[in-house]
Computed example of a mutant assay.
Amino acid sequence: MGALALACPCAWCAGEGGVPGVLASKKSLSREETTLVNIEPVGRYGLTPIWEDGHKTGIYTYEKLRAMCDCDECSKKRI
């Protein structure tokens, strides 16, 4: 789950307006930051993971999740 947490697209984590987010300066994440406790749908286009530390503002589109997938099937489609 670490890769998913490190890819959080919310403004706080990823940054906005040319200002880096908090993940830009982190070397590693805590267990609470990488423990998934729930996932909520966002409309018909994505999901919001809820992490044990309470963070729940990242909206991962299905497109982003597919692009992050490293299974054989998805990897072959990207070639």
Rank of each mutant, 00 (worst) to 15 (best):
C8F: 03
E52Y: 03
G15M: 06
V19A: 13
P9I: 00
K56E: 09
H55Q: 06
C71M: 14
E63Y: 08
I39E: 13
A24D: 09
G58Q: 01
G18I: 10
A5H: 02
E73Q: 09
E63C: 03
E32K: 15
E52N: 10
I39P: 04
E16S: 12
A5W: 00
P49L: 13
G21F: 04
L36G: 05
I39L: 15
V19L: 08
W12R: 09
L23M: 04
G17E: 13
P41T: 11
C71A: 07
A14N: 06
A5D: 04
E16Y: 00
T48C: 14
S28P: 06
C71W: 03
P41Q: 14
G15A: 06
K27Q: 14
G17L: 01
G58Y: 05
C13R: 05
A5R: 10
A11R: 04
L23W: 00
I39Q: 12
A14S: 14
P49G: 11
A14F: 00
A3Y: 00
G18Q: 07
T48I: 15
E16P: 01
K76A: 13
W51E: 03
L23V: 09
G43A: 13
D53P: 02
L23Y: 06
E33R: 01
I50A: 09
K64N: 01
L6A: 14
E52I: 03
W12K: 10
I39H: 07
R78P: 03
R31C: 07
C74I: 05
P49W: 07
Y62N: 08
S28F: 10
T48L: 12
L6Q: 13
T57G: 08
R66A: 15
G15H: 02
A11Q: 09
E63A: 15
M68G: 01
H55E: 00
C10L: 06
G15D: 07
G15L: 01
A67R: 13
L6F: 12
V22L: 09
